[in-house]
Amino acid sequence: PWHATQAPPRPKALTTVVATASSVIALTLLVAVGEWSHQVLLIPPLAASMALIAGASQTPLGQPRSVIGGQLVSALTGFLVLAVLGQGVWSSGLAGGLALGAMLLLRVAHSPAAATAVIVAATA
């Protein structure tokens, strides 16, 4: 049954330190570049992507093809929906769903990236 499952094994201390440090460095660099360019670059889906890269890189969702491809496909999907339907909650819902379909078709599924499409259509 679902309640009898066990937590995964705890990673080695060095693995935890490297994953944490690389995440902090990458995300703060993204903030620094955003501040320099006067653009918001750090959005929640990118933090989730970094967590997959640093903490679960062996999974399909944490592979570079999925992370980079999924984020690009989803951002483009969000901008396409934005251009056709305009900004709003209905557009953002549609963009998130369409982004998933596009990622699956292109074999770059990355769940945090669907949120990128939602954010683009809701706030761009």
Rank of each mutant, 00 (worst) to 15 (best):
S22N: 04
T77I: 08
L98F: 10
V24Y: 07
P44M: 05
P44W: 05
S66V: 07
M50Q: 05
L82V: 14
V33S: 10
L46Y: 04
P64L: 04
M50P: 01
V67M: 06
G69Y: 03
E35V: 12
I43T: 13
G70V: 00
L80Y: 12
V24S: 05
T20N: 08
L94K: 13
L85G: 09
L42C: 11
V31T: 06
L82D: 03
G101Q: 15
S66K: 09
Q87L: 10
V18D: 09
L72C: 11
L82H: 11
V17D: 05
G88N: 09
G69E: 04
G88I: 12
E35R: 07
W90H: 15
M50F: 00
L52Y: 02
G70D: 00
L30S: 02
G78W: 02
A95I: 02
S66M: 06
P64S: 07
G70I: 00
V67R: 00
G70R: 00
I53H: 01
V33N: 11
T28Y: 03
V67W: 01
G34R: 01
V18I: 14
S49L: 02
T77G: 06
T77R: 06
T20Q: 04
G34N: 00
L61M: 15
A32C: 08
R65F: 08
E35L: 06
V81G: 03
A26M: 12
A99F: 05
A48F: 08
T28D: 07
A56R: 09
T77V: 12
L61I: 13
I53Q: 01
S91F: 06
V17Y: 09
E35K: 09
G97A: 14
G78Y: 02
Q63V: 05
A32T: 14
W90S: 14
L76C: 14
A51T: 08
G93H: 15
G96N: 14
P64G: 13
L98G: 09
Q71Y: 10
V24R: 06
S37I: 13
Q71E: 08
I25K: 02
V67Y: 01
A26N: 05
A32I: 07
A21K: 01
G70W: 00
T28N: 05
L61G: 06
S49Q: 12
T59N: 05
L52P: 04
V40Y: 13
T20A: 10
L100G: 15
G69I: 03
E35N: 05
V24F: 13
R65G: 06
Q63M: 10
V17N: 04
T59W: 11
F79P: 07
